[in-house]
């Protein structure tokens, strides 16, 4: 057992945690957080693979590292878009739910579908 391997297993567990939260938590903001936890688990898994590729004096394989930086920025953008969608849904009906039957008006279902 070494450091990278340990964090690789940790990443696998984080993905599981996030997936569970994504399915079970009814509050959409919590689903976004769960999704971010899945994302960080995937990044960590990727980081493990990058770390294992350490060679020629570099701490890790630079290609996955660069992709990780890209990935973190894209994940942030996606989170921002999701939160905005959610806030618009709230503005429309005053209620936040992904349950179509519970939605008070027709318009509230539109943003959640996109």
């Amino acid at each position: 057992m070494n450091g990278p391997m340990l964090f690789g297993l940790c990443a696998a567990a984080l993905i599981g945690f996030g997936l569970y939260s994504l399915i079970v938590n009814p509050q959409p903001l919590r689903k976004i957080i769960g999704f971010n936890i899945i994302g960080s688990g995937v990044f960590l898994l990727f980081g493990t693979i990058a770390r294992r590729g350490a060679a020629v004096g570099m701490g890790g394989d630079p290609v996955p590292q660069a992709l990780l930086i890209t990935g973190i920025v894209v994940a942030f953008s996606a989170t921002a878009l999701a939160v905005s969608l959610l806030l618009r849904l709230f503005d429309e009906g005053g209620v936040v739910t992904l349950d179509n039957e519970a939605a008070p008006t027709e318009t509230t279902t539109d943003p959640s579908d996109t």
Binding site: A12, G53, P62
Partner: peptide, 22 residues
Amino acid sequence: TAALAICVLNLPDPAPTLAPDA
């Protein structure tokens, strides 16, 4: 989680790397 953990434990050794090329 279990599937991913199995993958992590069976990562190829030596690990492929692009560091020398970079």
